[in-house]
């Protein structure tokens, strides 16, 4: 360790090896931090250029727009019928979150607690929708949903979004369930509680953090899910991200700035969700089910 903690009164002079190591460590650290800062600067550029453009009156071949206005938001709001899009987005998300919890939590419990013939196979089947890219199974899924008349409106969007969400709930909940001592359930039963009571009075309160975490994770993923929604949505069941895609790919008809305004609305919605999410989960959990180690 280059920085050792030393007793305050007597501070021995740095030895020659100490000094050499510190110098040797510097270029590597600079490169690493340089790369990180470069990455963040570009990221900032990407986000800020959308933001600035959405407020700019006219912006063409200059560093910054000529003037600023908020009128693009009003135009985007009307042109893209954003109110109904946002309502649809929220409806879809709430339905997906609720249903995936209802289906996923009991299954996660059974998988975490019990061993039974075929468990590994079942686990693998639940894992597959997460491992496969949405487009691969999304096209056959959309075909089936259209065949049964379920796609093209909201039920299809909800059903399609459930496919990765339910396994996600299962994977997120499993460690939360595993960390509850099964003896606590036994104790409740020995006190006379039936299975239902054990679930409602003992397990559910203990699982609230896990349920909140997976709910928020599913919410973020559903709002941001493009492919499955894109493949199954009809004109009245587009979520914000799909509507954004359509407005972008049809740009030229609409002013670039109103598309940007819509993108900002989408971004702020995601950021609000993110801020909420990070109160309950840590950043790593948002991307994959890897338990972040408690800090040493």
């Amino acid at each position: 360790m280059a920085t050792t903690t030393q007793a305050p009164p007597a501070r021995p002079p740095a030895t020659s090896t100490d000094r050499r190591r510190r110098i040797a460590a510097r270029p590597a650290a600079w490169i690493v931090w340089g790369v990180v800062i470069f990455f963040f600067l570009n990221l900032l550029g990407v986000v800020a250029s959308v933001l600035v453009s959405s407020f700019g009156q006219r912006w063409f071949d200059t560093w910054l727009p000529d003037g600023y206005t908020t009128s693009w938001y009003a135009r985007a709001w009307d042109e893209f019928a954003l109110l109904s899009v946002i309502v649809v987005t929220l409806e879809v998300s709430v339905l997906v979150v609720g249903l995936s919890l209802l289906i996923g939590v009991p299954a996660a419990y059974a998988l975490a607690r019990r061993s039974f013939p075929g468990k590994r196979l079942i686990f693998l089947v639940f894992l597959l929708p997460i491992l496969m890219p949405p487009i691969t199974y999304g096209i056959p899924l959309a075909t089936v949903l259209y065949k049964f008349g379920l796609a093209g409106h909201m039920s299809g969007v909800v059903l399609a979004n459930l496919v990765p969400s339910v396994p996600f709930v299962i994977l997120t909940m499993t460690p939360f369930i595993e960390q509850i001592d099964p003896r606590i359930e036994s104790a409740a039963r020995m006190c006379g509680a039936g299975l239902r009571t054990v679930f409602l009075r003992v397990l559910t309160p203990l699982l609230v953090p896990g349920i909140l975490a997976s709910a928020i994770l599913v919410l973020v993923r559903t709002v941001g899910m493009f492919e499955l929604t894109f493949l199954t949505a009809g004109p009245d069941s587009q979520t914000l991200v799909v509507a954004l895609y359509y407005s972008m790919s049809a740009s030229g008809i609409r002013a670039q700035q109103s598309v940007d305004a819509m993108a900002v609305i989408y971004t702020s919605m995601m950021l609000v969700l993110l801020v909420v999410a990070l109160r309950y989960v840590n950043p790593t959990q948002l991307v994959a089910r890897v338990k972040d180690e408690p800090e040493h």
Binding site: D181, R183, I184, S186, A187, A188, R189, M190, C191, G192, A193, G194, V202, L206
Partner: peptide
């Protein structure tokens, strides 16, 4: 177990 009416003390206590 809940219908046998026995009480049980666990090694890990298993308090709620």
């Amino acid at each position: 177990p809940e219908r046998r009416g026995f009480g049980m003390v666990f090694q890990s206590y298993a308090l709620f």
